[in-house]
Lab assay of single mutants.
Amino acid sequence: MPSETPQAEVGPTGCPHRSGPHSAKGSLEKGSPEDKEAKEPLWIRPDAPSRCTWQLGRPASESPHHHTAPAKSPKILPDILKKIGDTPMVRINKIGKKFGLKCELLAKCEFFNAGGSVKDRISLRMIEDAERDGTLKPGDTIIEPTSGNTGIGLALAAAVRGYRCIIVMPEKMSSEKVDVLRALGAEIVRTPTNARFDSPESHVGVAWRLKNEIPNSHILDQYRNASNPLAHYDTTADEILQQCDGKLDMLVASVGTGGTITGIARKLKEKCPGCRIIGVDPEGSILAEPEELNQTEQTTYEVEGIGYDFIPTVLDRTVVDKWFKSNDEEAFTFARMLIAQEGLLCGGSAGSTVAVAVKAAQELQEGQRCVVILPDSVRNYMTKFLSDRWMLQKGFLKEEDLTEKKPWWWHLRVQELGLSAPLTVLPTITCGHTIEILREKGFDQAPVVDEAGVILGMVTLGNMLSSLLAGKVQPSDQVGKVIYKQFKQIRLTDTLGRLSHILEMDHFALVV
């Protein structure tokens, strides 16, 4: 994948999101292997301009796509893939009243899908469409860049269908997702969380590099694949309309690839034109409109599966009536509230959605109805927002919020430890010299600072030695090549209790 991002070429006709291997024109390309080798690009942008032909009021008969309808489940399912879809609609009884809503608040519980998330729908649909058009064949390999849930859905379907599955996901995604993927037989590649989507090191860039190296491999490409919004247009939206008897006044959905909100909203605009569509985008993402909503100094966020630093091709923002931004604290607070007060075992993005819903639905009156999409299960986040310690460490809970008995030293300040200034190293000294210094002084790690004293990161003896043994660096290389740029900081005025929580999850903390 090139470091400079080429513009994806656009073909003359058809839909841009065809499933299957992508040609340089962004659509299915038939021909000899030699032709494909000559024409197939190194990668295709996940934010390529959409060429979708959908228009409100256009006859369904003019759609270029294969459409399906929700099917009634048999008493005995032939395999677990038949437990994807037909998820329950559940009334939220307490939270709406707590925040003064007059309307009825309903939750579409997508964590009841077989793999635990709304992404099971698009995973199965992308595979079925690729099999139907002859792209996927027995023994082929599926590769997908994902925040985890699409990966789980694909790995689940691949396990049943017999495909090899490789999932490329950023490091910030939970260990629970990784464990589930491994249990399903998927191979996992992790990428830096802070890598831009168009960087060769991003999950998108690495996935395309693997595709170019592995024979008979395919990126189904949830960011561009029409099967993504079509899955929701054909099934999720129809289920909502049936469950609500066609009567709903507002739908609120958090947005990642945009397939969920695009597919549902398009069908609702056709069948229930008075329904307002509300999009939820986390602070630090750029999906919301108008652009002024996205202006923030924050560039990272903890909530998973929603928000991006690019506009995915499948996201149709014209069908969203209003956007709201959400933050991590309210997302996790509301997710825990949904679990504790409503018994809905949902993930953090569901918290984002409901946090926005109780604001947006203030305009609705008694007798009206708001539906929220709860995308995934708490299963993926047992060591994250479900953990009091994690919430404390991230600053989303305060010590006084917890009532468990603490040891005698818990409320003492870090400054009472009488710490001395640490050994520091410059980023320009060599790895070999740094190892000598650390061994001589008896230290395992040291902060790396520039000549102005600005902290650049941390270097550890173990990481340097393993990097040297693996051949990633040489003793003569500058130590700046092996620094940890993500590390926890703590102030002298913070409590030892807070430091204790940090050290339970990290090997060190830097006192500043």
Rank of each mutant, 00 (worst) to 15 (best):
T53R: 09
G259C: 00
E110D: 07
A183M: 04
G274Q: 12
A159P: 07
E4I: 10
G274Y: 12
V10Y: 13
E201A: 05
G153V: 01
A130R: 07
L156C: 02
A207W: 01
T5I: 12
R266P: 03
D238N: 11
S19H: 09
K83P: 08
T87C: 03
K271Y: 06
G274P: 04
R132V: 06
T141N: 14
R190D: 01
M169D: 01
K98Q: 11
R224K: 09
I143L: 07
G100A: 10
D179M: 02
A69F: 15
L241S: 02
L77Q: 12
R276G: 06
S61M: 10
H22Q: 11
D198R: 06
M126L: 08
G115K: 08
T68C: 12
A24L: 13
I219M: 07
K102P: 04
M169F: 02
P12G: 07
Y163F: 06
V180G: 03
R91K: 13
I214P: 04
R125K: 11
G14Q: 12
A48W: 09
A71Y: 11
G148M: 01
A69G: 07
G185V: 05
E40N: 10
H218C: 14
E34V: 08
L268K: 04
D234R: 04
E213R: 11
L181R: 00
R266C: 02
K82R: 12
I219G: 02
A114D: 08
I92P: 00
V118N: 07
K211A: 11
Q55H: 15
T262L: 02
K137A: 09
S23G: 04
S3K: 10
F197Y: 07
G11W: 09
R132F: 08
K94G: 13
E62S: 14
M169E: 01
T87E: 00
Y163S: 00
E270T: 03
K247R: 13
M89F: 08
T150S: 03
S217T: 09
S174D: 01
G205V: 07
E131W: 00
E110Y: 01
C244V: 13
D35M: 09
Y163R: 03
T5L: 03
S199P: 02
H17K: 04
P33A: 06
I214F: 08
V90L: 05
A107V: 13
N149M: 03
P215D: 09
E110L: 00
G11N: 10
L105C: 06
G20P: 10
G85C: 06
G274V: 03
S123N: 09
G162D: 15
S61E: 13
F99E: 10
S63Q: 04
G26L: 09
E34W: 07
G26H: 07
I167K: 08
V204W: 06
D179E: 09
A253V: 09
R164E: 08
E37N: 11
C15W: 09
L230Q: 08
S23M: 10
F111Y: 09
K30E: 11
V90A: 05
K108Y: 07
K108V: 03
P200C: 03
R18P: 05
M173H: 07
E144S: 03
N93H: 07
R45L: 14
H218W: 11
C272L: 11
P200M: 12
D179F: 01
D133H: 11
I95E: 00
R161S: 14
R182C: 08
I219T: 04
N212M: 12
K98R: 05
G96N: 11
K102N: 15
H17A: 04
K75T: 10
I166P: 01
R121Y: 01
L268T: 04
T257R: 10
G274W: 14
G263I: 00
E187F: 06
I80V: 15
A38H: 10
C109H: 04
L156Q: 01
Y163T: 01
A69S: 03
G14W: 09
S227V: 06
G20V: 13
H67E: 10
E270N: 06
R45T: 07
G185R: 00
T191C: 05
R132K: 11
R164A: 07
R161F: 05
E239T: 00
T146E: 04
